[in-house]
Design a binder for these strands. Structure first.
Lengths: 188, 188
DNA sequence: GCTTGCTATGCAACCAGTTGCATAGAACGA
DNA sequence: TCGTTCTATGCAACTGGTTGCATAGCAAGC
């Protein structure tokens, strides 16, 4: 269950509430792990009752109070244990690829709009990541030299950038292929 | 539920038994979707009772009999309907990236073996995909010209190749970063 | 004769994650 | 004043997927 571990890493980097975690999962952590707020609240509750996390009620002005979570010693130990366990290299779950192969049994050209939409989303993500890299790591306002944590965050972000760049190039290839098939003849 | 659709695509490309599907999911379809045999048998049963698939008992010599599934008309219609629906661009679920960020709170150098192992797995997958491409699409024994279905299978395979190639390059980057951190000083 | 491995199918229990819904105070704009 | 958005938390029901286990025939090798 890697959500637990992703939460431990995120809370070690910076303690925060469930709501704040959910927003982080839409941004930086979300580069490589996603979670909804429901899932996060549930797991936080379980982790706290398991003694992995500490909670602190934080009254706030002009907005609802929040519960700030931080990592307790057993949480840190649990993360460390996980880090020393081997994990399976992940495999893809790529719906769009299923669709592309399925298009052979339908109209390939009908997929064009869908693929173009995915192309836009991945281009946007790439631009977003590149802006983040400039802001946090390579731009003039970035800290230099980076500490170990920042170096590791940067190399993970470079992975996200490489993934989005690769995906955009591949989707160009897919679009060209679909157009070629649509132009040269009917489908099966 | 994309497993249903992946099964429909696979059975349209070639009818087969649950066991054969499971092996395909370890190979070509598994480039972009994974499933265990238990999951496949269960879904096949449901799809058949929903009328999406036809079954045929096939007695075999020298090995147990099998049930050969093929796509019925409603199954084809269901696939077509899904192809015309938009889907969400997928997001990553990358455990290793969580580990890498987590290494800041442990010993970065301890991750080296793990990352090297992943590097080997992805290098092997890349070699495997490239061999498949040569065999089925670009080598001397490959059909030419390709039909629409083969063109689409090829473009999906090119996606898998691009993914593995990108991953191998990124893991080189990760290894260099971990070694640099291990060499220059202690962790947090 | 025994073990190992391959083909072939399946059940049962569990777990992670999604979807839909609910609540509630405060700010903000039409 | 009314609807919308943002912060903040949560429950309940469901679904998709994993894990562990079971069965059974046949082939190959020791």
């Amino acid at each position: 269950m890697a959500l637990e571990h992703a939460i431990l890493v995120s809370l070690l980097e910076q303690p925060g509430s469930g709501y704040e975690l959910a927003r982080r999962f839409e941004r930086s952590i979300g580069y490589f792990w996603t979670a909804t707020h429901q899932q996060i609240y549930r797991v936080l509750k379980r982790m706290e009752s398991d003694g992995l996390l500490d909670v602190r009620d934080v009254p706030q002005e002009r907005r609802p109070d929040k519960k700030e979570y931080s990592v307790a010693a057993p949480g840190r130990a649990a993360l460390s244990g996980w880090l020393h366990e081997p994990i399976e290299p992940e495999s893809l779950r790529h719906d769009l690829a299923v669709k592309i192969r399925g298009a052979a049994f339908d109209d390939p050209a009908a997929l064009l709009h869908e693929v173009e939409r995915h192309h836009r989303v991945h281009s946007d993500r790439l631009a977003h990541y590149l802006a983040g890299e400039l802001r946090d790591f390579t731009g003039p306002g970035a800290p230099a030299p980076l500490d170990a944590g920042q170096e590791l965050q940067h190399v993970v972000l470079r992975g996200g950038i490489a993934y989005e760049r690769m995906t955009v190039v591949w989707l160009d290839d897919v679009l060209a292929t679909l157009r070629r098939l649509g132009a040269t003849g009917p489908h099966i």
